[in-house]
Design a binder for these strands. Structure first.
Lengths: 209, 209
DNA sequence: ATCAAATTGTTGCAATTGCAACATGAAGTC
DNA sequence: GACTTCATGTTGCAATTGCAACAATTTGAT
């Protein structure tokens, strides 16, 4: 279930979406999501599909700011989407639900019984985004490509509780996420392989330590 | 005024702090703040002083995760303070106010008239933290020390609306924040100076472009 | 099944950076 | 005011990385 609705009964969920005039969009692969959303300020979530928030700077360098899979929540205030360098892209066909944030914030709704829970959930989601960003910073802070890779593996491995990692990113994207040159990363992965730290089969990586 | 209390009347602010049994602490310079706070889950703010949230990893490398000046809000959910690598340190004598977050979340308070505004404010603060972290990531993502410095200057300069920057960090701390070697950064600052991009007088930097 | 596009692997080389070591200067303490 | 601690500047050198260019492989579309 979507984390926006934790501890909210199904009937209230529907009512809430109805009251707030939520819109659903189905978007084909490689679509710029923000072009479809007219709200200046919104909260949305992914019903199915996979999208990414990507930053491209003046050098043409890109970074993956967030990955958005099923049930991921995103939005203006949750992802700094007022930043003009950011773009939300569907990497496969995706369906999303969009709620107007300014409307959420209007007084009249605040008396609704389930509304407080909705706010709590939003706060909890924001808190998780902060934690994710701290993880990203922790990785970027490492001085060598090797340390960045190992930190990345460590965080995923701790999150999933297994030493077998299925990358959700391509290696090209991973290099962007770590902010390193792809070929240099490829070289370092080879070193890690040859030194017996990891085993790789396509995007499945096994940690041997 | 503290952003936690935006749009909340003074008398309600006091009542809120009283109801939630907020505690005040005055801490000398170089104190580990988390040692003083017993709450497992809290929201706090800085009344006066200056503190930093610092991460130290197994290599002994440190990064500045957040700077907390007057009126800065921090807390378990806002700063991932359950992360054991994080430490909050007073860099000068500081006074802080601490509220128990679990208590905030209890049902009974949610009827209070100003409480909804309090939640809104919390969400707004969380949103700003996310934006700050995105800025940090944007900086760390740059490939060269020069680009990191220029990006850092750009962000501060846009925020303050002036080309004269007064660093709140020492150069040693700035190097940590940018995740680069201090001496290499010093060398790059010299280059920027000699090429006429910047002028420096101690921690006052003037952008000449 | 076939072709085009995207991803991945590889390598040489130049540029950037980290590290170490030391000198100087500033700030804080007693 | 003397002294210690911390911050800053500087430099040589080795290690790491980015870049470019190309081959090989995989994926996707028709």
């Amino acid at each position: 279930m979507n984390p926006l609705f934790t501890n909210i009964e199904k009937k209230y969920q529907d009512k809430l979406l109805y009251t707030l005039e939520a819109h659903t969009f189905t978007l084909p692969k490689n679509t710029r999501v923000l072009n479809t959303i007219k709200n200046e300020n919104f909260i949305g979530y992914v019903i199915y599909g996979y999208m990414q928030i990507i930053q491209t700077d003046y050098n043409g360098n890109t970074t993956i700011i967030e990955e958005l899979g099923e049930n991921a929540v995103f939005g203006t205030i949750l992802s700094s989407l007022n930043n003009t360098e950011y773009e939300v892209i569907t990497k496969e066909e995706s369906q999303i639900k969009i709620i107007d944030y300014n409307q959420i914030m209007e007084e009249e709704y605040h008396k609704l019984p389930y509304f407080h829970q909705f706010f709590k959930n939003l706060l909890e989601i924001a808190s998780q985004k902060i934690a994710e960003k701290n993880d990203h910073i922790e990785i970027l802070t490492k001085k060598t490509i090797r340390d960045k890779l190992l930190e990345y593996f460590k965080i995923i491995s701790e999150k999933t509780g297994t030493k077998i990692i299925y990358l959700t990113l391509t290696y090209t994207e991973l290099a962007d996420y770590l902010a390193v040159d792809r070929s240099a990363m490829s070289r370092e992965l080879k070193n890690l392989r040859e030194e017996g730290f990891i085993k790789t089969e396509n995007r499945r990586i096994t940690l041997l330590y």
